[in-house]
Design a protein around this nucleic acid. Structure first.
Lengths: 95, 95
DNA sequence: GGCCTCCTTGCTTTGTTGTGCAACATCGCA
DNA sequence: TGCGATGTTGCACAACAAAGCAAGGAGGCC
């Protein structure tokens, strides 16, 4: 019954942009306006990706004046990414 | 650069049906014709889901007569699923 | 060979996702 | 109060993904 919840977290990870955001946040808290130039995307797009990560429970935010600071929602996340990554490399597929 | 590979594995996990298939395969090898009634889906649909999991390197198959037997491609997969699952529950979101 | 079972592939339909632009809300500052 | 910086949301469009049906390939058995 919680295949659904698993798949929803996976959906949040199913975009290279969002994975990249998580990796950036591994390096510590960042505000949206720092992410925009790093990702080279429209602010609205970045905002939407962050909203998706947030709904999935992978990131959290706090306001600091005009800016909104984003951080990983759990210290487990780097481990999870690494876990997927090593699986992805181990099973590198020739398509 | 391997945000892409991570996101591709995540894409494979981004469907409840495919997560369910992986969980079934945790219990051991199964052939497609066993999965069809368990999943209550058209054989063609099951076949496609298996192909996606296979391309992502999450499952492997071998032919046994008419049947094709499917198994998890790595013993790490149950751990990965559990990892996502606990994160998903920990961060249960009220939407 | 003919036939059955199992599986895959092509096609179509339907729904979801990602993107950019424009408009708007929020906050801080002068 | 007005303005600039930062984020979010509505809309439109393109791209992609999931499903079922129909047709076809592959293996085993008579």
């Amino acid at each position: 019954m919680d295949e659904l919840r698993v798949s929803e977290v996976a959906k949040a990870l199913a975009s290279p942009v969002r994975v990249r955001i998580l990796k950036i946040l591994e390096g510590g808290e960042r505000c949206g306006c720092e992410l925009v130039p790093l990702l080279e995307l429209d602010p609205s797009v970045v905002s939407r990706h962050l909203a998706i990560l947030s709904r999935a429970g992978l990131v959290e935010s706090r306001r600091e004046g005009v800016r909104i600071m984003w951080r990983l929602a759990s210290p487990e996340i780097p481990r999870l990414l690494h876990c997927i990554e090593s699986l992805a490399c181990e099973k590198q597929v020739s398509r």
